[in-house]
Design a protein around this nucleic acid. Structure first.
Lengths: 394, 394
DNA sequence: GAGTCTTAGTTCACGACCTGGAAGAAGGGA
DNA sequence: TCCCTTCTTCCAGGTCGTGAACTAAGACTC
């Protein structure tokens, strides 16, 4: 039961945040539109905006016809006020990207790895960080923060458990902080992809949504009431290990009948192989080949996969009543591009009528490379939350 | 994207709310403890408390030894400041109860019904309301609000869909408001039972929890970040219709393999019957008899039920990572009282290690009659949120 | 092209509010 | 009687949003 007082300062910070967030998320706005949207008085908007402009967070961006009188001056968050860096730590590479506040990529650094140790990752991320800073010509003091996305469970900026990397209890933010004084944020990869979709992709505008990711494995990011829901200890969203066939196929998590064992690319290909299908090449090639095959076992496997996935979606629809489900992940996208309508129809068979009627099921818009973008969003979100106040450096 | 300004008045209301909520939820507290908990200055606490006492919301309640000096004066929400009424609208009865703010029942009125129409329910609730007001000797102006719990989907104080009652699109709050000027709140029955457990029962202190209700049917109430989670259009929590056995038993919702078809009392008894078990008497009698039977089919059915229920719990554990799951409903309690440890162990087989380790699975403490209590909590929560400001009457 | 209308944005006095500090009152024990 | 802790009271200091009056900047009118 956290209950906190409010002081006069909180009030101003909160109102700065309201204004800044509106400008950032709802595109260029005039002061006049801000007074309407925020229900602040014109005086306060003027006052707060003047402060934000003086600090350089916000800038004027041309003007637009008013309704007959003085033209409105549009305001936007100055894209070059500060820069943010996002890093994606995967099994096969470490990617670091530098963005301006409008989230344009200004520089990128990739580093291939395999099963990297924490120390290696720290090294690669820090190298990537200085490399993108140098390449973009941005001053290090201009970098607002570094967001790092790791495939694993992350609690309080530390990696608690990352099975694919074989990590456990790695204080990644702390380790990175020894090599840079740029504020570091660490979070889970699926959540970061979800965050990217929610801010800049197919989830824009939704407040209760699920970003469902189907690749080799299956995961999701939950968004409740406009912000990411993480549960009591940040491991919410493990949708892939939901039991969907009681007593069914063995999943790599040890349990039986998990959704992942049926709709994860690995599970799908296993089922295809068992049905006599021919699986050739790497997982992705084989999966795509399966999807375009017209053979008998393939058709059945695809139909079954859609059915299982639909049941998984229906469980989300019934339990969390989202307004939108965004399907992503490479396998999810490949499947969705061909079979989205069937999938939607199939969900209707498993879900309750009312919540089904309230949900729209769509595909990710940003592709699988948006993980670093999502991670880079972390410092931006913090900036917006704090009303443009800069974090303290050590 | 709701973004709202803060004004200097909001600040005071918010601080009043912080103080009042602390006093209400954390028992009698002294001013001194309040300054520590809320981090408000002693001057402000004194000021705000004086105001609350002057208005009668808060009262002094004896004193307690200090650390060597003047004793601390304890403060509590005055139980008789106002009264609240809760109503439970079920298939077989309408129950209305009047409570003081400490949630002691002062009067109760039951009215048996069967498949009541909305108009009948309105009549019974309003009769119950005046009957409990008369019986308790409370002035009608002293009644803070009326909370009504209905078994069905409720959106914005209107019943959208209540299958067991056969209702659709019933503006219940509006209809009730024509017969009383006491502010009316309408909500879903499962959520209200959940709310009661969260405030006064086994959920106390938890901020991320699920109250799982197993009766003839199966439902749940989700609590995220300290408050009830309702999804985009208030129908979240339909845990019972989660697919758990893909292509399995037909559920009354029309889909196949829903959890409810396996662990709802009706589903359990059906399975028992199919296995050759003898089902006699009404559902509840038969269910209890099954639980205490030592015959072969009974043992298997019970073990299977525990397994299915565990998978359902595991799905919750994985997806929402709650800190607590509270099992209730008459069938859930009957089962839980005998088999809670087995259930817990079984959940561990289906859930991921980490979120499983973070959850505690407990039984409801309030029994099945707490629905009206939960409903009566609605106006109390509103009072606390508004810092003790009374709602406007028409 | 001067005047007027309309809408956008700014300035300023005002009242509401929290804080910290100081002084003191209240209530008990040593 | 003295000491200690808990409240209360008071005040200056500072912050903040608001409403009303005011200025700015175009377009329209005659």
């Amino acid at each position: 039961m956290e209950v906190r007082r409010t002081t006069v300062r909180d009030m101003r910070r909160s109102n700065r945040s309201v204004i800044l967030t509106s400008i950032y998320r709802e595109g260029p706005l005039s002061r006049q539109e801000l007074t309407v949207r925020t229900s602040l008085s014109a005086a306060s908007v003027s006052n707060l905006v003047a402060e934000l402009i003086a600090e350089g967070v916000v800038e004027e961006a041309g003007s637009v016809e008013s309704e007959g009188g003085r033209p409105r001056v549009l305001l936007r968050v100055a894209p070059t006020f500060r820069y943010v860096v996002g890093a994606e730590v995967g099994e096969t590479r470490v990617r670091v990207e530098l963005f301006d506040l409008a989230m344009n990529v200004l520089a990128r650094a990739d580093h291939p790895t395999s099963a990297p140790t924490p120390a290696e990752v720290v090294k690669h991320v820090l190298e990537g960080l200085s490399s993108v800073i140098t390449a973009s010509g941005v001053q290090p003091q201009q970098v607002l923060g570094l967001g790092v996305a790791v495939a694993g469970v992350v609690e309080d900026n530390a990696v608690v458990d990352a099975q694919t990397l074989g990590w456990e209890a790695v204080p990644l933010a702390e380790m990175l902080a020894e090599g840079t004084d740029i504020p570091v944020h660490v979070d889970n990869g699926a959540n970061m992809l979800g965050q990217a979709e929610m801010y800049f992709g197919a989830g824009r505008g939704a407040t209760d949504a699920v970003v469902a990711l189907v690749g080799s494995g299956v995961g999701s990011a939950l968004v409740a009431g406009g912000s990411s829901y993480r549960g009591t200890r940040s491991s919410a969203g493990e949708w892939g290990h939901m039991t969907i066939v009681y007593g069914g196929r063995q999943c790599r998590c040890g349990a039986l009948g998990c959704l992942e064992a049926y709709v994860g690319a690995e599970g799908v290909l296993d089922r295809y192989r068992e049905a006599g299908g021919l699986v050739e090449g790497d997982e992705e090639t084989a999966f795509v080949a399966l999807l375009s095959s017209t053979s008998e076992p393939a058709a059945t496997i695809i139909a079954d996969t859609i059915g299982y996935l639909a049941a998984g979606f229906a469980n989300l629809v019934n339990l969390v009543n989202p307004e939108r489900i965004v399907l992503g992940g490479w396998a999810g996208l490949a499947l969705g591009e061909k079979h989205l309508d069937e999938l939607r129809a199939e969900v209707g068979k498993h879900a309750l009528r009312r919540p089904y009627a309230q949900v729209s099921i769509v595909l990710c818009e940003l592709g699988r490379d948006a993980v670093a973008l999502g991670a880079a969003t972390l410092p931006v979100v913090r900036l917006l939350r704090d009303g443009g106040a800069l974090p303290n450096r050590r």
